[in-house]
Nucleic acid binder design. Structure first.
Lengths: 228, 228
DNA sequence: CGACACTTTGACGCACTTCAAAGGGGGTGG
DNA sequence: CCACCCCCTTTGAAGTGCGTCAAAGTGTCG
């Protein structure tokens, strides 16, 4: 049902030089990955990889937004993480993807063969350390996710907005790349509760909602207070 | 309030040979850590390390049970993980502990200086890989924790029991090392809900509770069904 | 045996879910 | 360019699972 805009064999023929000029300091593993990576594009809603597929590749997001998710046996969906440009994902230690990954918007990314990176890591322990650090950063994010999930709806939504604001490093204007349903499945709430909570935050002047995906943080202190 | 039974300066004088005979195959990093580690003991309720303390050491649990936890600003407590013998914990990538660690029972563990392990990892990339793998395993556990937290009380408790049964690798008899409060704080529930849910599982013949910490899994299939 | 900590049980309230329907907003065809 | 449609979001009303408050039961250690 979900289809790639580009498949591997096509992508392999794309020029590898387009992104080679990115400065080595901007993100971890920049340079190494840019050298080895193959640029690919995915359309909105395309599946990048599926749950339980072998994890042969590692992905560095260049543009767009990716969500990982898992469908539970009763049909519920849990969103694991949202990835923004610069983020690395798909790095599973046991060779199988626990979550699937989908493009939320038009996505451009670099695909790197895991075996190639690992071979490099075996020779260069600085690379090895950066791979480890990437997994460590992921671990910290998931810990934060756990902390969100034990809170009230207001706290979860407020925490989510603060997290997104931090990550897009914008001013107080956030353009949410994901739908209400994605947010709900990330926060373990229903879409109705997310919607109602956002309206209530707007009514209490903590945020403004010029359009459904455009959020203005009017009172970060109030949001942080909710973020208990 | 929490006190160590043994402090570092004392522990450093303890014999390093006591546990050196553990077979190298039993767990990852066995051997390397046993060589470098200093045995220590902690009394029930002793703090092993605190939240926000620098993460200078890495711990390999030999005996007893450890819980990591975090106190939220409003006083709620979240339990991050339970560690059983053989588990490695305290391995934070950014040098600061996000959670504190406490001994739930009498605990024996090996303390290893992080810098020493990292120096070893820089020379031996097999060690480096195992450190990475340990973080990866931790990540998978926390993902599982997220999946628990979006479920109903019955599903959380059933999932918890199945997880513990798997980890202690016993038959259907589980001796829970942690209190109801610990379980509640791990599952994001109240102690009353955990207690009521266990009684209801007992009434539905899925488990038996000869004593409050002794659980018998009578019907794993029923528990798995709840575990949606 | 008594004190204390932990666990269980009960009654009630509330936050979130569920079910239902009414708005937008953006793209396409007439 | 307007009209219509489809999908996403918002709002409303009612139900319920879990939390809160309270008290009784159970096991353990001095």
């Amino acid at each position: 049902m979900l289809t790639h805009t580009t498949n591997f064999s096509i992508a392999r023929n794309v020029s590898r030089n387009a992104l080679a000029a990115v400065p080595a300091s901007s993100h971890e593993l920049t340079g190494s990955l840019e050298m080895m990576g193959t640029p690919m594009s995915f359309a909105r809603n395309a599946e990048i990889y599926g749950e339980n597929e072998p994890a042969e590749y590692l992905y560095k997001l260049i543009g767009g937004t990716v969500r990982t998710s898992k469908i539970l046996s009763d049909g519920r969906r849990q969103v694991g993480e949202f990835y923004l440009p610069g983020d690395i994902f798909g790095l599973e230690m046991d060779g199988v993807h626990a979550f699937s990954a989908e493009a939320i918007s038009e996505v451009k990314l670099l695909v790197v063969k895991r075996s190639a990176v690992e071979a490099l890591a075996a020779r260069d322990h600085e690379i090895a350390r950066q791979l480890w650090a990437t997994t460590g950063r992921e671990l910290r994010r998931v810990h934060g996710h756990v902390l969100l999930l034990i809170k009230t709806a207001q706290e979860r939504v407020a925490g989510f907005l603060l997290e997104m604001a931090e990550r897009v490093k914008s001013t107080d204007q956030i353009e949410l790349p994901m739908s209400r349903q994605d947010i709900a499945d990330y926060l373990g709430l229903t879409i109705e509760t997310v919607s109602r909570t956002l309206t209530s935050l707007e009514n209490s002047a903590a945020i403004a909602l010029p359009s459904s995906r455009h959020v203005v943080l009017r009172n970060r202190a109030a949001l942080r207070r909710l973020n208990a």
